[in-house]
């Protein structure tokens, strides 16, 4: 799909999510991306963000739609040549990569691990703040626990719930704190304990976001970016309070 079509689809999607994108801003965005090397995905994203999003309240919605539209289209974020073939290839590469991840850790594929082992690995990854491992585990957890089936008409929230329930994340924080206490050579002061707790909370939150991202990735692969973006409209309007002004404008 050529960049131009992709961009107009993207902007149409931003508008239907309630972001007020004017024609001038649209043109600015087109100018801006010309200045950016197309393979630099981060710069591409900030170029679009700076020209199209003029309120911080809209940033989250923008990020999610961006991810669905651009990041998930090809293995190398190849925006110029994103076809369904590329999607399929990305899918395959992920499978291979996942197996690669598993080898390093346990001598076999991650698929062969028991749920207890997964939980154990997750805990140690969170303990050590091992980002790569957390990402790999997020992928594995979604594959295993979310029970995603092609064409099933349920939203991402449902899959998220299923994945997190199986991982028992609610008790993870307490477990981490206890393990940390056992490890520490001397008694932690209340201040240190509090700081540790905040650190773990941040990591668990990061992991949840990885899981969410993985679910979106799979949904896009299953349904296609356009269909997926439609399902994003509702939650984005509900959660972002500052969308309300734009929303009322949409309705009238």
């Amino acid at each position: 799909m050529p960049v131009l079509d992709l961009m107009s689809g993207f902007i149409a999607e931003l508008r239907s999510a309630g972001l007020p994108v004017s024609l001038t801003e649209n043109l600015d965005a087109m100018e801006a991306v010309k200045e950016i090397p197309i393979e630099d995905r981060d710069a591409f994203k900030y170029a679009l963000g700076a020209t199209l999003v003029k309120s911080n309240a809209h940033w989250r919605a923008f990020e999610t739609i961006f991810e669905v539209y651009f990041s998930l289209r090809g293995p190398e974020y190849d925006i110029t040549d994103a076809t369904s073939d590329a999607d399929a290839e990305m899918w395959r590469e992920q499978q291979e990569q996942r197996q690669g991840d598993g080898k390093g850790q346990s001598g076999g594929s991650m698929d062969s691990l028991t749920p207890e082992e997964i939980a154990q690995m997750l805990m140690s990854a969170l303990m050590n703040g091992d980002q790569a491992m957390m990402r790999a585990l997020a992928r594995q957890a979604v594959q295993r626990f979310a029970g995603m089936e092609p064409g099933r008409p349920v939203g991402g929230t449902y899959y998220l719930y299923r994945t997190l329930r199986n991982l028992d994340l609610d008790n993870m924080l307490e477990k981490l704190m206890k393990a940390n206490k056992d490890l520490a050579e001397e008694e932690l002061t209340p201040l240190e304990e509090r700081l540790e707790r905040d650190e773990f909370e941040t990591r668990i939150e990061q992991f949840k976001q990885e899981v969410e991202a993985e679910i979106r990735r799979r949904l896009v692969a299953d349904r296609g970016a356009e269909a997926m973006a439609k399902t994003l409209r509702k939650p984005c309007q509900k959660t972002s309070t500052s969308c309300t002004r734009a929303e009322t404008r949409c309705r009238t």
Partner: peptide
């Protein structure tokens, strides 16, 4: 809106 439209936005 008129002001914002003329600028790049950075939060």
């Amino acid at each position: 809106e008129a002001l914002k439209r003329r600028c790049l936005y950075l939060h």
